[in-house]
Design a protein around this nucleic acid. Structure first.
Lengths: 251, 251
DNA sequence: TCAAAACATGAATAGTGATTCATAATTCAT
DNA sequence: ATGAATTATGAATCACTATTCATGTTTTGA
């Protein structure tokens, strides 16, 4: 759950269904040159793996590009954003991009992974030390909405990942769902909440959080984070709480 | 709410926030030829408006293309799907496409609008005549998940609309949210459910439905629709029901 | 101080696919 | 029937941009 026990980092195995592109989930590529063709034909190593920078200077440049990519892609969307616009924003030459990233898809994946880490960190930070499950849930929801509001690009990027890097998208949500599920299962065992299918509940709760995030970030709702948290949490408490302990979640 | 009162068709005014592309929400276009440039410069009429077919024959062809587009775009995604692959699937020549649609973006918008209509229809069909709000809610959720399972492309297409036709995306969800909101507000007035912010609740409930839809369609969950409906509805009932009428939603 | 290693550059390459267009083939109204 | 509409065709255009590459420039280490 959003207010679960620390950064659960599962490595869920493929169970998905959808298309899954041709190869490594990567999308198009203008140039299907020799190498690319081979790669695609062979066991395909997703990418020649962008060699990590060896200098502080390189490290800085890489970061500048990544950060520029976050802004540009977050604003214009993956397909609209060109390498040119990214490198321009970063203040480097176009070719420099390929020193640090293997492809356009590559930065994108990096971005998705990064955001996932940041978000999980923000949430586990906010819920650390909160014993009561439902209280933690509340804090987690609050942290989530706060983070999303602070990083509006997050929303677009993660959503778009479904089309650009399906694999990363699945991994992203599976990881969150898994954390949620564990928290719910545990809470149910403890009798803190009514018994019920933890998986389905996890997805339902995740949906609430995502939807409210979208409501505020994408649809520009005027509702404050606190209002959303209050209202949603009231629903969640009643929706989950053990029968003996209702009201606002405390006996 | 999913089990609301008939097909609410609001015409929500722009309140959004995000980028909103250059012009009519339309995305790129390889050819910025004379016309396009003018169009973009001038007051820009979104599209020369694809002239509706005048013959049964034309009507059939148009439908064939639209249907092919649904399949192809739903499977490959907007950017991967080429006009060529769509017309091939439809069994017509490439040029034929432009007899019925002004652009690639155009079919897409049409698709999004269509699906919205179908979905709303399916839901209002399923909930027609159900008096009890919460019962209707349940039926609506069931109809939604059933529809989504039957049209897996729906999910991808609607999601992708956020990047291809942001305006249509906003309209789509605003319409649903509005219907939900009204249902909730009404139910609250009647004392069927506890009072609470109807807007926020609407988005929260919408999130549950969307998330479960994604769980089954995108993530290939093994959970049956009934399991999902049961679990989610139990949460929703407790999450919303008036204090006097709890349990499974009936006094 | 100097060669090697790391970085940086930006022009050139090259694949792609949306859109157009000059020509047919069909169908319709009279 | 038969000219006008309507619909169909598919090759050609052509803008667009990811990626490469031949050259510089800077930094590092000894």
């Amino acid at each position: 759950m959003l207010g679960g026990g620390g950064e659960t980092v599962s490595n869920p195995k493929e169970t998905g269904s959808r298309p899954e592109k041709g190869a490594a989930g990567s999308s198009r590529s203008r140039a299907k040159s020799a190498v690319a063709a081979q790669t695609a034909a062979a066991g395909r190593r997703p990418e020649p793996a962008a060699p990590k920078p060896k200098t502080a200077r390189g490290e800085a440049t890489r970061r500048a590009i990544l950060s520029a990519a976050e802004r540009v892609i977050g604003e214009q969307g993956f397909n609209e954003a060109s390498i040119g616009s990214i490198t321009r924003e970063a203040g480097v030459a176009q070719g420099t991009f390929y020193i640090y990233f293997a492809s356009k898809d590559d930065v994108f994946s990096e971005l998705v992974a990064d955001m996932g880490r940041m978000l999980r960190h923000a949430i586990s930070e906010a819920t650390a030390g909160i014993a009561d499950r439902l209280d933690a849930e509340r804090a987690g929801l609050h942290a989530f909405l706060t983070f999303v509001a602070a990083h509006p690009e997050l929303y677009r990027i993660v959503q778009e990942a479904q089309f650009v890097d399906h694999k990363a998208y699945l991994a992203y949500f599976r990881t969150f769902a898994e954390g949620y599920r564990e928290g719910l299962a545990l809470a149910a065992e403890n009798g803190d909440i009514r018994p019920g299918d933890a998986d389905i509940r996890a997805w339902a709760l995740m949906g609430i959080a995502r939807s409210l995030g979208e409501y505020s970030v994408v649809f520009g709702s005027a509702a404050s984070i606190d209002e959303m948290v209050d209202t949603a949490h009231e629903m969640i408490v009643h929706g989950l709480a053990a029968v003996s302990d209702r009201g606002d979640g405390h006996a």
